[in-house]
Structures are given as C-alpha cells and as structure tokens.
Simulated assay, not measured.
Amino acid sequence: MVSLVSEIPAAPSEQAEAHFARRLSLETDCWDVHDSSKSGTPDFVLLDVRGPAAYARGHVPGALNLPHGKITERRMAEWPEGTLFVVYCAGPHCNGADRAALRLARIGRSVKLMIGGVTGWIDEGFALESDG
C-alpha cells in the first residue's frame, strides 16, 4: 500500500536542490534574522512593511517601518545600491511582505522575505519592541 506521502514520487535530487536553493535565495526565517541581528553587524536592512499603528504596537527589534505602499525608487535611494532588504508583515495570513518584496524587486533592489512575519517571530519565542 502506498501512503499519501509517497503516492507522488519525490523529485530527483537535482530538481530538489534547485528548488530549495531558489527558495533560500528569496526567503529567510525569523531565527536567522534574530541570530544575524544579535551579532551587532547585520548585513541587511529589516523592513516592517505594516502600517504605523501596527508597527508601534510591536515590531521586530531593529526593524524600520516602511509600509509596502510607500516603497518607491526615490525612497529607497536612501540606501546604497546592493543593499539587501528583508521584509516582513503580520504573518502567513498577510501578503504585505510579498507586495513589498515585489515592489523592491521591480525597482532593482535585492530582497528576501522573512517567512512567518510577526507571528513567526513570536512563535520562535523572540520579543517584540513597541513604541509605547
């Protein structure tokens, strides 16, 4: 009897390698962002792309608030070409980070999405900071 897991055969290892390498070129996770940030020398700019009220209630430490609708070529000129941006929103139920990543890519900026967003950050046991 074949299980639901193996009913569809696994991809050849070469295809799996390409798939997962591609995903990692587009995404990072909360643990890696936390680990990089606590080193004191993160090599990326972390953007919370939710609205200002949500950001003020609680955000990832060190994140800058830049709602996805305000990402423009002019605004992003504040950072040198080649800057890597990591974007996040509320969590898996929110597509704001995808919208931000798309805007950044369309203006030629390097971007990764922090999978899980605020929900993932909290699930990992990391604290948020707030403005109030």
Rank of each mutant, 00 (worst) to 15 (best):
P52C: 10
E7S: 06
G116E: 07
L64H: 13
R75K: 09
V87Q: 06
T83E: 09
G120I: 03
T28K: 00
S3V: 03
S13A: 13
P42H: 07
L113M: 13
E27M: 13
W79Y: 15
A127V: 03
G91C: 08
E7L: 01
E78H: 08
D48C: 10
V33H: 07
E7M: 04
G58Y: 05
W121Q: 02
A10G: 05
T83D: 09
K38R: 14
N95A: 07
R103Q: 13
L102F: 04
R57H: 13
A21I: 10
L102R: 06
W31Y: 14
T72I: 06
L113Q: 14
V5K: 01
F126Q: 09
P12W: 05
H93T: 11
G125N: 03
G69T: 11
R74C: 11
H93W: 13
E78D: 15
F44E: 06
E124P: 00
S25V: 06
A90Y: 03
M114D: 06
F85N: 08
Y88K: 02
V87F: 05
V45C: 07
G58K: 04
P92A: 15
L46M: 12
N95S: 07
M76E: 07
T72H: 01
R57T: 14
I122W: 02
L104W: 02
V118R: 03
I107H: 03
V49W: 02
K38P: 05
P12A: 14
V33P: 05
E129H: 06
M114H: 00
S130L: 04
L128Y: 06
G108D: 05
G96Q: 03
V60Q: 02
G91T: 08
R57S: 15
R23Q: 12
G108P: 00
S3R: 02
V87P: 05
L128E: 09
G51E: 15
V86Q: 01
H59W: 05
A10C: 04
A77E: 12
H34R: 10
A105G: 02
D35V: 12
T41V: 07
L4E: 12
L128G: 08
D131R: 01
I107L: 13
G91E: 12
D48W: 04
A63S: 15
R106T: 14
E73V: 11
V60C: 04
R109Q: 07
I8R: 00
Y55T: 11
A21L: 11
G62V: 08
G91R: 04
D29T: 14
D123P: 00
M114Y: 01
H59N: 12
K70P: 09
K112P: 02
G51A: 14
V49D: 08
G96I: 01
I8C: 01
P42D: 12
E81Q: 13
H19L: 15
A54G: 06
L26C: 12
E129P: 02
D98G: 07
A16E: 13
R75A: 15
R74M: 10
A77D: 09
M114A: 02
K70H: 15
A97K: 02
H59Q: 11
P52K: 08
V5E: 03
R50H: 05
V49Y: 01
Y88F: 10
V87R: 01
F85Q: 05
L26P: 04
V87E: 11
G62H: 07
P52R: 08
L104M: 06
E81N: 10
L84M: 12
G58Q: 06
P12F: 11
E7G: 00
G62Q: 09
G91K: 05
V86N: 03
T72P: 01
Y88C: 05
G117Q: 01
G125S: 03
V49G: 04
F20I: 08
